[in-house]
Every structure is written in C-alpha cells, then in structure tokens.
Design a protein around this nucleic acid. Sequence first.
DNA 1: TTGCATAATTGAACAATGTTCATTATTTTT
DNA 2: AAAAATAATGAACATTGTTCAATTATGCAA
Lengths: 196, 196
Amino acid sequence: MDKKEIQEQRMKMYFINATKELLKGEGLKSISVRNIAERAGYSFGTLYNYFDDVKELIFICVEDFQTECREFIEERTKTQAQGKDKLRAIVKYYMFYFVQYPGIFELFFLERANDVGNKKSTFEMIYSFLDKLSRDEWKYLVEQSALSKQQARLKAEITKNMVVGMLIFYLNRHNPQSFDEFLQKTEILLDEILNF
Amino acid sequence: MDKKEIQEQRMKMYFINATKELLKGEGLKSISVRNIAERAGYSFGTLYNYFDDVKELIFICVEDFQTECREFIEERTKTQAQGKDKLRAIVKYYMFYFVQYPGIFELFFLERANDVGNKKSTFEMIYSFLDKLSRDEWKYLVEQSALSKQQARLKAEITKNMVVGMLIFYLNRHNPQSFDEFLQKTEILLDEILNF
DNA sequence: TTGCATAATTGAACAATGTTCATTATTTTT
DNA sequence: AAAAATAATGAACATTGTTCAATTATGCAA
C-alpha cells in the first residue's frame, strides 16, 4: 500500500531526525534508545517496529551527514580556482566539519565494524569520501605535470590517513589544546605534503 | 607500614595482571569489573578497595604496555645501522605491535579523555611515544644533512598522525582486508614520506 | 454506527554494565 | 580470649539495548 509506505517513512524520519539532532548536539555518548525515542515523541519500544536495532538507525545518519559535509565544503571552496590552494581548502574544511560535529567523527571513523552485510558499503563510502571530494584537484595537478599519477595517489593516501590521526588527537585528546593551534598545524602539515 | 604497602601492591597487581590479560586476549570490549575481578580471584567489590574506578586500572596498563611495546621494537631493530631503514623499521614494528594487540591500540588512541588530572600526562606520553622511539633516527638523518631539522619535524608529525589513521582503518574497518596488503601499504607510504 | 480484525504503541521485564555501601569475615591488637 | 581495625563481599541502584505480551488505535465490513 502506498499510504502505509508514506506513513512508515514518516515515522522513520522522526527517529532519524531525533538521532541526528542528538549526534550533532551531544555526540555519540548521549545516544540511547530511550533518549532518541523521547525526542521523537514515542516510546523506546516503538523504535523497534521501524528499525532492527539502534545501529541501523545510526548508520542511516551517516549518509545524511556525508551529504551535509560535502555541501559544507563545496559552499566554501567552489569559487576557488583549481590547484593546490583549493585542494588544501577542501581538506581543511573536511577537517573543520568534523571538528564542528565530533559526534559525527566518532560515528564515521571510530565506530567498530562488528559484523556484516550492508554496513560494508557504508564503511567503504566513508573510507573513500575524502578521495572523492579531492579527486578532481589531484587529477588537475597531475595534468599540470606538477606531480606523477603515482605520487598523487600516495600523497592522497598519506593525507587521508594523517587527517584521521590529527582529528583523533585533537578531538579525543585535546592535542593541540586550542583550535588555533590545530588550524596552524593543519596548514603546516598540508603544506609539507603539497610541497612539490 | 611496610607490610601493608607490599600487600596492597600485591593485591593491585592481581587486578592489573588480570586486566592486562583480558586486554591482550579479548580486547577492550571484554573488560568489565566483574570480569577482571573474577580473573583476579576476588569479588568485583574488592576491586574498589584498591582502585577508584575501572579507568584508573586500565590506564595503569597503558604504561606497562608502552614498556612492552618499546622492548618489542628494540628487540627487532637494535642490530640495524642508523638511517632511513631503521627509521622505517621502528615505525613498522610500532604498527605491528598494535596490530598484534588491537585492545591496546583502542586503549592508547581511542579511549576518550573525559576528565582530568593525572591522565593528562598519560595522554602526553602516548602522543609523544613514537617521537621518542624514533627521535635518534631523525636526528641522525638531520646530522647527515639528508634533510633539514624543520622538515624532519614535519615528516615525523605526518608519520605519527598517518600511522594512527592507518591503524584505525585496518583494525576498526578491515581496510585493507589482509595483513599482507596492510604491510605493503605501510611500506609504500613510509617510502613516500622518507623519499628525500 | 457498531463490531470485529488488524496494526501500532507501549512499558514491564531481562541481562549486562559501573559503582556504592552496609554487612560479613578476617586479621591485628590489647 | 575479647575487642578493635581492616578487608572482602554481594545485594542494590542506575544505566544500557532489546524483547514481547498487553494495551490502544485504526481500518473496514455489516
């Protein structure tokens, strides 16, 4: 039935939006079934009529946040001309997005891949997310003969992994202590990687 | 009293060793107060006569594991002559140690810095751990005029952060899937960073 | 409108978590 | 041996995710 479909989707949305609000606000630690359900205006039991478990709900949020993150970056970099500067900016705003929403960072990178199935593709999406965001710029630099295709691949890989490490230390360990220092460090290390 | 001191230390050791065994074996997820206490041969309540909370117990393990990790690396690299190869080897075995004990990786890098005080220094120790392990090699390379002091600092920083990112993706997300691929990727990326 | 059948919502109940604390057991001192 | 001090214990509490029988709401046919 069509009506059923619409109603079910609407119900799901209530829970999804509640979860997204909590993740943005308080982060992963504030997520509980009872919390989500209360914010959605239903009992915690009702949640299980629409989702198998709380993980399913949380991983639905990942895709929404990815879209949001992409838009966040594009808004801030679309006017820039192709090249190193734009590449740097993309990576920078990619990091800033997660600094703004540490809960989403946890969700994207720290949540364990316990089990199976459909989540595999979600993880793959997260892993290649920065690659997709910066692909055009690396490609452009290769076409400009600024560096070889192989070197671009390696530097992109180094960047991708380094960025996660930096975010861990900053968000989980307050190292560096201030955002200013973090910003400065980001710039300096990206400069070193793009120093060709 | 001296006797009291010895007895208390001994009691602490029972719990610490039980915790270390669990971390090495099953990882952080298998850690529970009742689990630790059972393995130590006492009630879970007894644990609280010797530790403020389970976090204190866990963070004591960090220092022990750091010593173990340092020895693990030194055993495998002490015969090598100073230079790039040894530096690569140190970083590699640093990573291998955590691949061997993913629970210790979680403990070192993923456990949140919730609160205060004495843990600050523990986190600082963890953060600078790879720096300390590889300091002599970077210094040697600078002395050999292979690269500038500033560049060495930056490359060390890039490496430190990248390594954590790579371990996250490998241990938490099974990316790459096999240890062989992970090993290969490690070598290639370290080569690129040390390509001077 | 009424009555029945189907569907959706609910929260009590369960297991597992960390932590507290009054009670019990042990050891030390007198 | 009795008293005092110390240590060990597990019942109890507040959380957590999840299940499911019972309740409430809804849709539909008569």
